[in-house]
Design a protein around this nucleic acid. Structure first.
Lengths: 155, 155
DNA sequence: CGTGAAAAAAACGCAGG
DNA sequence: CCTGCGTTTTTTTCACG
């Protein structure tokens, strides 16, 4: 199960990651192939699981989320069942847009969106601080977004 | 310039965020509208900037990135020009997939992907530690991804 | 790989409620 | 603002060499 794709596949992946509305024809022109094999390659990339799906990217600001916070959480990890309970509780919070278990001083790192600081404060008090087993919560607000998480580099 | 969208717009946004390949017809059926106004609404949402674009989501694992790291960086921020220089240098690193200036103990938070720990180690030594003005670099590896950053909640 | 062609959908316009 | 209808143009999808 090695990575087995060539330069053209790379071009296709990069182009589609940037704009999924490109047609097979446009992609064919970009890559120098003709339309049919180009379409077949895309099919292959989809079936191989390299392309996970096509999604509209929504604008955080246009949706009214003015606040992005990174939240480090430490818990009392007594047993695995409690950990799973914690993870499920966090995952169920819609404002938590990213959620990883991490090494280091904290146990989990969350990325959270909120309309404003008041909304974030509510979320903190009513959801995050009430999570089962939580010991410490530390918030870091984003003050400047230099790079969103929009794309992966093509190897 | 308030958020001015109704329940149907919310449905459309949620559906397209989940799957951008849905046709106007399918979306019309889902929302109970007919095809024409449905299509018009989508156009409006695009023009209003709520929909930022359509993008293929690539699979990190299928691309061969086994490592995700969160990197906190503190710098000696002597003047603004130096800060901008730093930011540009970081932004130019393809493996840095997310990059925010943050409040708290560190100045910046990065999310980085790498093939494996060796690749991450190289990146750290050859890129991150060599950044202009960097004072401290702290890495937290992701050991479990409970939620990627795949979608925003619809308000 | 390529050319070509049928079937589907997008991208609208328009009349009328 | 919606519906329903129709039209033109693109795009998808696939048979075949």
């Amino acid at each position: 199960m090695q990575n087995e794709f060539d330069e053209i596949d790379r071009q296709l992946l990069a182009a589609l990651q940037d704009n999924a509305r490109l047609t097979s024809g446009e992609l064919a022109e970009m890559t120098g192939l003709s339309q049919s094999p180009c379409w077949r390659r895309i099919r292959r990339l989809e079936e191989a699981g390299l392309i996970d799906g096509y999604h509209a990217r929504l604008s955080r600001r246009a949706l009214g989320y003015g606040v992005v916070a990174f939240v480090s959480i430490s818990i009392d990890l007594q047993n695995e069942a409690r950990s799973i309970e914690f993870a499920e509780a966090v995952r169920a919070i819609p404002q938590v847009v990213m959620f990883h278990g991490v090494t280091g001083t904290a146990d989990f790192l969350l990325m959270v969106v909120a309309k404003d600081l008041d909304a974030y404060s509510d979320l903190l008090q009513h959801s995050l601080h009430r999570l089962p087993g939580v010991r410490q919560v530390q918030t870091s607000f984003s003050v400047q977004e230099f790079k969103g998480f929009n794309e992966l580099p093509i190897p």
